[in-house]
């Protein structure tokens, strides 16, 4: 489903290279965890997948279902099924959360040539999805993410993921800022979406999240490259021994 080939990318503004020859393949139905120390390029990778204009790809390619997405803008990528759950979801004053959900869902449907959802059907879907995530409708009347607690923001991200039904879900540090109850709610939300035609890229600093969202593969990202891949036991190893051993080994 996702094939990243020899990807090199830099910050557009100052030219700092962050991703330096990254290779990664994720199959449909797979949950791949990306782990790595701070500054290894984890968040950058997630932004590049979503198409954030602050980064420039200088070499290599990103194939999604066999086709390059590098020329697609973020909206086109989203409509084709790529979803990024942000580590720090942006607060957008003046845009009511419910209104935003309506516009987002119908924009994607329109881009795919599907009919737009009518308000009652839309409300029904939102209510159902929100209930399971412990999100009340009052929260959805508030401006998008404005004044939401850390946990509320993360739950709102998962709500969007549930409603938009993407095919490639990139979760950037979804566990950061969550207490154990919220972590469980969020993980249950993600697990409920696991399916043979959907892939997940779970980016995390800690093994903790992977107790709840059990990965099929684990990849260690360091200085913009995948330096080691394995199964879930690799995450355990990292938890016990830290990154130092693996970094030394790869050097």
């Amino acid at each position: 489903m996702l094939e990243i080939k020899n990807l090199h990318a830099r910050i557009a503004e100052d030219g700092t290279e962050i991703i330096r020859g990254l290779n990664l393949t994720v199959q449909a139905g797979e949950v791949a965890a990306i782990m790595g120390p701070n500054g290894s390029g984890k968040s950058t990778l997630s932004y590049i997948l979503a198409g954030r204009p602050d980064y420039e790809v200088t070499e290599g390619d990103i194939l999604y279902n066999g086709e390059s997405i590098l020329e697609m803008d973020p909206a086109e990528r989203a409509a084709s099924g790529v979803f990024l759950a942000f580590q720090y979801p942006m607060e957008i004053p003046g845009v009511a959360t419910m209104e935003f959900l309506k516009v987002a869902m119908n924009s994607q449907r329109k881009a795919r040539g599907e009919e737009e959802l009518k308000i009652p059907e839309l409300l029904k879907r939102v209510k159902e999805a929100a209930g399971a995530l412990n999100i009340n409708m009052d929260m959805l009347k508030r401006p998008l993410n404005v004044g939401f607690s850390g946990g509320e923001k993360k739950r709102a991200e998962i709500l969007q993921m549930k409603l938009l039904q993407p095919k490639l879900c990139v979760l950037d540090e979804t566990d950061s800022g969550l207490d154990i109850d919220a972590l469980k709610i969020v993980s249950d939300g993600v697990n409920a979406l696991r399916s043979p035609d959907r892939a997940f890229l779970v980016i995390t600093h800690y093994q903790r999240l992977l107790d709840h969202i059990v990965p099929d593969t684990v990849h260690v990202l360091y200085r913009g490259q995948i330096i080691k891949s394995g199964d879930k036991s690799l995450a355990m190893e990292l938890e016990q021994n830290g990154y130092a051993g693996i970094i030394d080994e790869a050097a």
Partner: peptide
């Protein structure tokens, strides 16, 4: 705000 624009676009809302 370019970040706000990116966030909305990342949810499929055209520019």
């Amino acid at each position: 705000h370019p970040d706000h624009l990116f966030y909305l676009m990342a949810r499929g809302v055209e520019e």
